[in-house]
Design a protein around this nucleic acid. Structure first.
Lengths: 150, 150
DNA sequence: GTCCTGGAGTCTCTTGAAGAAACCCAGAAG
DNA sequence: CTTCTGGGTTTCTTCAAGAGACTCCAGGAC
């Protein structure tokens, strides 16, 4: 694929893609989130090639999204979400929400989310951290920030 | 790449990836969002190969995320966000937010977002659509939904 | 000790996608 | 009638993804 290096771009979207933009990476993260934390489990669940799974796991560990931890004396490891990784799962929830709305079809969403705080099956809602009002793509103006390109 | 077909999986994350998971697609969407709507503009800004740009644009149009529209009598077209596409930009904002927090480094975020409603530079916040409390990956339990696999 | 098993990778080979860059086509300008 | 410009298409090369066999290591059975 001769992948372009997104990490150097002055764009947080591109930089994020550099971490989880490769094929399978988000699904690996989802699986770890729901408790499939071992190599064999991930390989079986995703049907991904072992070589690519190895590469993805290493990449995610390098970027401090997953932590590789022995779970037994033998060469047995499991992969756990770091704090950085857990916040990426927020992104996955938003992704799932869009898919639920636009791609689920007749059958309805394959997965529902029960919110601990209220106990209800609910959806995620994007709000302004400052005023609390809804904040969507059309509700904002992008402006150059301190880290903008020269 | 012999890309795996994510669209058949009973997972809204995988299905969403089928629409914008290919390399460059999110960046194409971002560019269209900020007003780079024409083939030449996109190609110049991203430095993407023309062939791949053609493929991505066609794919996004097929999936009703972008709309291809003539802007002159001649063979001149521009690409615009549909409603479905605009909601994908919400996802990009969350992606940018994560990148701002974890990958921006010394310089700070390259782009800031001013919220129309309050006029402040702000960040996006994930809340429960039901109770309004914060809703993050650790605050929910996933359960099988109506469209779950058999 | 020797054998067996299971987890966690590595290696090899083939196919196909990404990149680069040249080429093509329609309509307008001169 | 030639040139220019936007919007692609074509060709060719390189490199990543997929498939699946093979390896390595530790512990337990014998």
């Amino acid at each position: 694929m001769q992948r372009t290096d997104f990490s150097k771009m002055a764009c947080s979207i591109a930089r994020t893609l550099d971490v989880i933009g490769e094929p399978w990476s988000p699904l690996v993260l989802r699986d770890v989130w729901v408790g499939l934390t071992r190599f064999e489990q991930l390989q079986a669940d995703l049907g991904i090639s072992r070589k690519v799974l190895t590469e993805r796991l290493n990449h995610l560990v390098e970027h401090d999204v997953l932590e590789r931890r022995p779970y037994d004396r033998r060469p047995r490891y499991e992969y756990l979400l770091t704090e950085k990784g857990a916040e990426l799962v927020d992104l996955l929830m938003v992704m799932a929400d869009w898919g639920d709305k636009w791609l689920a079809g007749e059958a309805g969403p394959p997965v529902l989310y029960r919110h601990h705080a209220c106990g209800e099956v609910s959806r995620v809602d994007l709000r302004c951290a400052h005023c609390g009002e809804p904040m969507h793509a059309g509700d904002v103006d992008p402006l150059p920030g301190p880290g903008a390109a020269v």
